[in-house]
Write a protein that binds this DNA or RNA. Structure first.
Length: 209
DNA sequence: AGCCAGGGTCTAA
DNA sequence: TTAGACCATGGC
């Protein structure tokens, strides 16, 4: 009998909870969601720390594209990311008063229309910046499911799996995603020691690299 | 010394 | 619609 999403969530909560939110500041979520694209979180943290209190919509929209590129260079793909952050910042400044009146789907479509914002970044922003329900499927999530023997053909199928036993709720979606990151960082990363792992019975880690 | 990291875009078939 | 090249830096 395979695990359900609800059972997975409950085990993660017991093992690692309570989870932390990405950031209380919505703009920090937008900014870091772009920086972290195919990039180690370590680099994002260093870059964010160096930017400090200048990481505001008004400052970022004020400076030149080249200056922004230099500020985020350590995160890689800096030309593309700087353009994306500029566009995202302009959108946020224009829209921030009306976002709460918009449907989740409407916000998602506008985010996806920004070049450099794909499915994952849009979902991260929806959940952690705007508290809208949406499942975030990233590399950690795919690895995690795969190690539990849960294989899918697409991210839509992965989302459907989560949604089948969990109601639409932004807090649950955000906490769940963060718990999977915590789990991946603590357990399933460089070492195969999984004795205390809440999924030791189901996990395929040793078989799957 | 490679390989990988919390992706996304563009192109070819 | 899907696979593969490409973008770029830092850490191990």
């Amino acid at each position: 009998m395979p695990l359900t999403a609800l059972e997975i969530y409950q085990r993660l909560l017991t093992a690692y909870g309570p989870p932390r939110w990405w950031s209380e500041d919505p703009y920090t979520v937008l900014f870091q969601a772009v920086l972290v694209q195919n990039t180690a979180w370590n680099n994002v943290e260093k870059t964010t720390a160096a930017i400090g209190s200048r990481m505001t919509p008004s400052y970022i929209s004020l400076i030149s594209l080249e200056k922004l590129e230099d500020m985020i260079r350590p995160c890689g793909f800096f030309k593309a990311k700087a353009r994306t952050i500029k566009a995202l910042t302009a959108w946020f400044e224009e829209r921030k008063e009306t976002i709460r009146t918009m449907s989740t789907e409407a916000i998602r479509k506008e985010l996806m229309d920004i070049k450099g914002i794909g499915e994952e970044s849009a979902d991260v922003i929806l959940v952690y910046a705007f508290h809208r329900s949406s499942f975030i499927i990233d590399a950690y999530t795919r690895r995690f499911l795969s190690r539990l023997g849960l294989d899918f053909r697409s991210d839509d199928e992965r989302k459907a799996f989560f949604r089948s036993t969990l109601r639409e709720n932004a807090e649950i979606d955000g906490f769940f995603h963060w718990l999977m990151l915590d789990h991946g960082k603590m357990r399933c990363r460089k070492t195969p020691e999984c004795q205390d792992c809440p999924f030791s019975d189901e996990c395929n880690y040793t078989k799957i690299r």
